[in-house]
Structures are given as C-alpha cells and as structure tokens.
Amino acid sequence: MALNTAPNIPDPDGFYAELLNAHDGLSDDDSIALNARLLLILANHIGDRAVLTEALAAASKGDT
C-alpha cells in the first residue's frame, strides 16, 4: 500500500479544531510530547513499514 496523500479525513475543520483543542493550555514542551505520543499511536495504527518510511520522507521534505 502506498502512502495516501489524497484527502481522507471527513470533516477536516472539525478534526483540525479537535487537534488544536488537545493542545490548549499546554506548555511548548508538553505540546511537543503530545505530538510525539500522537505520532507513535498513529504510526502503530498504520503498521505498514513501507508507508511509514514514505510518510517520514514526505514530512522531511517539507522541512526546507
């Protein structure tokens, strides 16, 4: 399975609001930690090693 980069989340605005609400009131360090936990949970859910490698590459490319 290849990395899906097509829109795949129903109610994108609702999701985005929920994501930011989870960070509401956290310190920067706590936010970083929350993001790390969330990433690991989602990575485990995906499970497919090749997809995770592709996702890492896509995210790293954005860091320019």
Binding site: T5, P7, I9, Y16, K61, G62
Partner: peptide, 22 residues
C-alpha cells in the same frame, strides 16, 4: 503550537492534496 500546525498544513498543501481541505 497552533502556528506550527498552521504552517505545517500550508507547507504540505503545496505538494499534497490531503492538506488542502485543512
């Protein structure tokens, strides 16, 4: 953190369609 997420969405949206609805 909301600024970081906002700019991450904008960075990704240039190349990845999934980020555009966000």
């Amino acid at each position: 953190i909301s600024h970081v997420f906002r700019n991450a969405v904008l960075d990704l949206a240039e190349h990845h369609p999934f980020a555009r609805p966000l």
